[in-house]
Write a protein that binds this DNA or RNA. Sequence first.
DNA 1: CGAGGCATTGAAAACGATTACTTTGTATAT
DNA 2: ATATACAAAGTAATCGTTTTCAATGCCTCG
Lengths: 332, 332
Amino acid sequence: MVSINDIAKALGISASTVSRALKSHPDISLETRELVKAYAAKVNYRPNALALSLKRQRSQTIGLIIPEIVHHFFSSVISGIEELAYSKGYRLIICQSNEDEARERINLQALIDHRVDGILVSVSKHTEKYDHFEEAIRDGIPIVLFDRAADMLNTDKVLVDDYEGGLLAVNHLVSKGRKRIMHLAAPEAMSVGRQRRKGYLDGLKTHGIDFERDLIITCDSRDGVLENQESILKLAPEIDGIFAVNDNTAISVIQLLTAHGFKIPTDISVVGFGNDPIASLVSPRLTTIDQQGFTLGRQAVEVLIHRLERPSVAGSNQTRVIGVTLQVRESS
Amino acid sequence: MVSINDIAKALGISASTVSRALKSHPDISLETRELVKAYAAKVNYRPNALALSLKRQRSQTIGLIIPEIVHHFFSSVISGIEELAYSKGYRLIICQSNEDEARERINLQALIDHRVDGILVSVSKHTEKYDHFEEAIRDGIPIVLFDRAADMLNTDKVLVDDYEGGLLAVNHLVSKGRKRIMHLAAPEAMSVGRQRRKGYLDGLKTHGIDFERDLIITCDSRDGVLENQESILKLAPEIDGIFAVNDNTAISVIQLLTAHGFKIPTDISVVGFGNDPIASLVSPRLTTIDQQGFTLGRQAVEVLIHRLERPSVAGSNQTRVIGVTLQVRESS
DNA sequence: CGAGGCATTGAAAACGATTACTTTGTATAT
DNA sequence: ATATACAAAGTAATCGTTTTCAATGCCTCG
């Protein structure tokens, strides 16, 4: 790897002249400039980004902390992030928290140590204390939270309109004549799940349907469905609709019900959330709420870069909400 | 952000003393050491990884170039890579080539500019010339190719046993009494697809089945199935088995055949490749070849770090092959 | 002919850390 | 008393680049 100093020595001129010649600084004579450029090209000179970052106090690098990579929604978000970051000249350092608070803390610190210009975070499911983020924010490190945010954190956020999604799901089920709608919900602690549940509740209220506590079952995965199969099957004869907090749960419950003789959607209509690719491949094809992961990722980067490239005005945090749409298929 | 110099000034000692005190160098008196450590902790000092990288000529960072992130197999690989890299103290910079050669070249250059210690690459589908990789390898940059490699490139490789997968698929179909087996294949240019096809051909040969050129159709996606539906449907009545180069294609062809009255697996057995999560959710559930993306990712990092941490012996390139297994389900 | 201007270039500091090589002062040995 | 050893600290170079502030030499103008 050849450096500016190597070039300077080889040509018998100073490093500063080389540096200036390479960027066509007007102070440098045409002759020298050409000479330097020709030689640099010949030896395939490439500026050392590390040295530049140190000098400029700017690494043109964005850090990303994500709960898990192997997940269609999250990988879509990552793709959107990479895409826009790349086109804006930023590199992306990625860390996986594996839904673990301790790991999330280590990741955050590592990114700060690497002097990334800003950090994008989707908070781990099991994070209970937020002081690591609070401290970073206090220290002026630009942080944008996406999808999974914490209300208490005072920073930019880019979220999916989970509430609207819950509303859309219930409206749709009601429009299909469904009146007793079960909700397979995420644990209370998850902001995302809370919003979907709130949408569900408000949707019922709008249509004058009384909310029944028993119809909400905390169950947000394939395993969850298996664990709760008794209660689900006991209620099944009395209900005519299900809104599941995600597609996997929706598909699992459809399989469970089908296996026990229920007809979907004749007996029970089912709506999922996420529009995972599997939703259109299972049978019956799943009605679900589409959330644009790729767009979410792009917007998160956009917000972050906006922050990076303007003098940050205090208290000007923005929250963007990405719209969702209902995808009607065969399960409802 | 406080630096070693800031600490030195604040305590009225030299930067070198601070540096040594922080790492408990024996030259420094216990008193000074404690003093420095206490102050560093108080002001929350963190070493600047950029400066360290520059000094050490080692960034503890690995670069990754991957064709696309939103893809179950690739995202599994990324997860495996991140997992092991993280535990070995390396950070991961990720770049998406989007199956585009020009972009791949830019990504490679960017990673080199950032002085990553080594690079993991899965070659883009549309890459025709490999001189960018050859040059990097010649310059001594440690590169490990995974999954999609190019024979001509002389470097470490970690591959899926695609050949064995093709073989397993055909063996299985034959064991089910199938004799006229169609292959939905990837274009010749893709090493991965070539190996799977070779496994298919050798599998047929092993069982004394004559290979029929017409039974190989180049078609490796949902769109491909639609484009080739005429030829597929024309051949359908004469065949009794299909080996598709990936799960998506397998699922699409099952949908096509089912829609036209064929019974799967009664009339035609279908085997896919990849063991994507959808394979066990569609109906009939898809028989397929399981490829361990996560393991592949870990192994790729392992090989790379092995290279990084030993003095690289010339011509000692290794190629690791990750085993595959047959997952029998309902489609065969 | 000397002052001022301008075109070119170089020296040195800075970014943050490490480290080989002094330097300083004290204690021990001869 | 003097040479020697050693502990503890500081100086300066280095990694690769940028940039401020000279320095040099030449030309022009009065």
